[in-house]
């Protein structure tokens, strides 16, 4: 078992989450070729190292957030809201 620190709910059992996989930049849907889009969809770095990935707190706050996790030890060193989410919250003045 690993304990995942949700930026909203604190430390929770990983079973409450869905691991959405490694974070990567989404190509522009208007200009991406089918090959580029498929590469984005399927290709993975799958590193044995520190990785930045997206998790979803399915059985909790139902928010997406980013963590840095080591895929060999499962140690987690940072947990934060995705940049887009932070910008959204700031613009609401919260």
């Amino acid at each position: 078992m690993i304990v995942v620190p949700c930026p909203w709910c604190g430390d929770r059992n990983s079973m409450e989450f869905r691991a959405a996989g490694e974070s990567k930049k989404r190509p522009d849907v208007n200009t991406a070729t089918p090959e580029q889009w498929r590469t984005y969809l399927y290709t993975k770095s799958n590193l044995a190292d520190w990785v930045t990935e997206t998790w979803y707190h399915r059985a909790g706050c139902r928010r997406y957030f980013a963590i840095e996790r080591h895929t060999v030890t499962n140690e987690i060193r940072t947990s934060r809201l995705p940049a887009a989410q932070i910008r959204l919250d700031e613009s609401k003045g919260s």
């Binding site: 079973m15 691991a19 490694e22 044995a48 030890t73 499962n74």
Partner: peptide
């Protein structure tokens, strides 16, 4: 197991 990992530890879950 529901997340990517190179760890070969078992879990109680």
């Amino acid at each position: 197991d529901p997340y990517a990992s190179y760890s070969m530890r078992g879990s109680l879950e």
